[in-house]
Design a protein around this nucleic acid. Structure first.
Lengths: 240, 240
DNA sequence: CGTAGATTTGAGTTCTGTCAAATTTTGTGG
DNA sequence: CCACAAAATTTGACAGAACTCAAATCTACG
């Protein structure tokens, strides 16, 4: 089974999945809770953009991971103890909740499913590793460019004026995700607006004239394009 | 099946695994290559400490991930294109190489294996997320303390003088892993030595009087202990 | 015992964080 | 539809932590 085929196993199994899973339609800022460690519930992201906000005790910081359609959220992949929360960042979202027993049952019926889940988790691990490189080796400007590029690749629409996409994260969310300060993020985006790299109608709507200039503004552009830019359009076309 | 039981599936399947896998014993600085993306080869870390050094094109930086016994390295979980390299950091190491066909065959025979692999990848994703928090929200001193604590928990031996462990990474490795500068790492460790937090016989051998003071020096100590400090001793007891 | 490489340390610079105030946006009720 | 309050964002001034560059030491290894 090739990777390309595997990518759709969760899709082709959707009849069976649909019987076992509990679909949840969410609106902006709605929280979906994920039980803590011993539980093996899976949340399958189906539509929209979600952020996994993980408050780690003993630290004032929260880890913010972005979740796109096709991604899987599970307690074991989250470093915090106890419950975790997945928050809808886009205007609407859809999650399928799969309880532990259902996961085990599906894995017995559909032998490819555990393999597919492992593959997805591997993809998400690759993204986390890349994100480590982003916040570890790039300047503030480059980090913001990386996020914009990621969102443009994942959720952007081509328009005459360039690639348009919604910025579903607040400045504070962006800051926490990119390991920056909210003030600094604001400064950087103002600078980008002034330099003409991006245009913003409203605060939450970005237009980027061309992706190439964004990629040039970010040393990891090539890797980001590989991780975020392939076949996600079909999965993310329900963006608001 | 509880998580505790799952943790050992790869172990209990070792007879079958041993038939399919190619064991590789490595010495310090030895490289084990992992074929690029379409390949589904798995490298199972059995003994020792390895670093996955991923050079991302278009960037001068390399992502360094630490791999401990029980961890899995696979192309899909690595953000770089093409081949990847796993480098032995400890004096000796052992890896089991599982080629794609062997993985598929094992998954048909042993239904729990894909599930176990998914669980391991989830654990590694949790560690990557925690590492994001480390390099994103901690000061240089705190990051170094976090690494020392991780190594102490994973490979430390209790001695009358405190917890002793080898520092298998060079200052440059540490710097790249922690998103710092090699000079800064050196400065920080000198400061820690001066303050009595750690003692160093030779450059690669560290003794920490007590873990608590390290944990106090790192706001994420609690989370690190949870992720690194539970039942790894039995897996890592072959440390050099 | 000498050399190449790794580490340490100093001095100066830059980027980002902190704090505070001004401004814009969003949400609510009349 | 407008006014108002609360929240979010923007911007300025300043401080501090980490980086860069360079030189001095130290180690490992032949």
């Amino acid at each position: 089974m090739s990777i390309a085929q595997m990518t759709n196993v969760l899709g082709t199994a959707s009849d069976e999945l649909a019987r076992r899973a509990t679909p949840v339609t969410t609106r902006k800022h709605q929280r979906v809770t994920l039980p803590g460690a011993p539980d093996e519930t899976l949340l399958l992201i189906r539509k929209g953009l979600f952020v996994s906000r993980t408050a780690i005790p003993d630290s004032s910081s929260t880890v913010i991971t972005l979740l796109y359609p096709g991604d899987i959220a599970c307690a074991r992949a989250i470093p915090a103890q106890g419950h975790a929360e997945i928050i809808t960042a886009s205007d609407v979202g859809e999650i399928w909740r799969l309880h532990g027993p259902a996961v085990r049952m599906l894995q017995q019926t559909n032998r490819g499913m555990a393999h597919e889940i492992a593959g997805r988790l591997a993809d998400q691990a690759a993204r986390l590793a890349l994100h480590n490189a982003v916040i570890g080796s790039l300047t503030g400007d480059e980090r913001v460019a990386a996020l914009l590029m990621e969102l443009a690749l994942r959720t952007g629409k081509h328009t005459p004026a360039g690639i348009a996409f919604a910025m579903p994260l607040s400045r504070l969310d962006i800051a926490e995700h990119l390991a920056l300060n909210a003030d600094t993020v604001s400064r950087i985006m103002s600078r980008m607006r002034a330099s003409g790299l991006i245009t913003m109608t409203r605060r939450r709507s970005v237009i980027c004239r061309d992706l190439d200039s964004l990629a040039r503004a970010c040393p990891l552009g090539e890797a980001l394009a590989r991780v975020h830019g392939t076949s996600h359009a079909s999965e993310a076309d329900n963006a608001p």
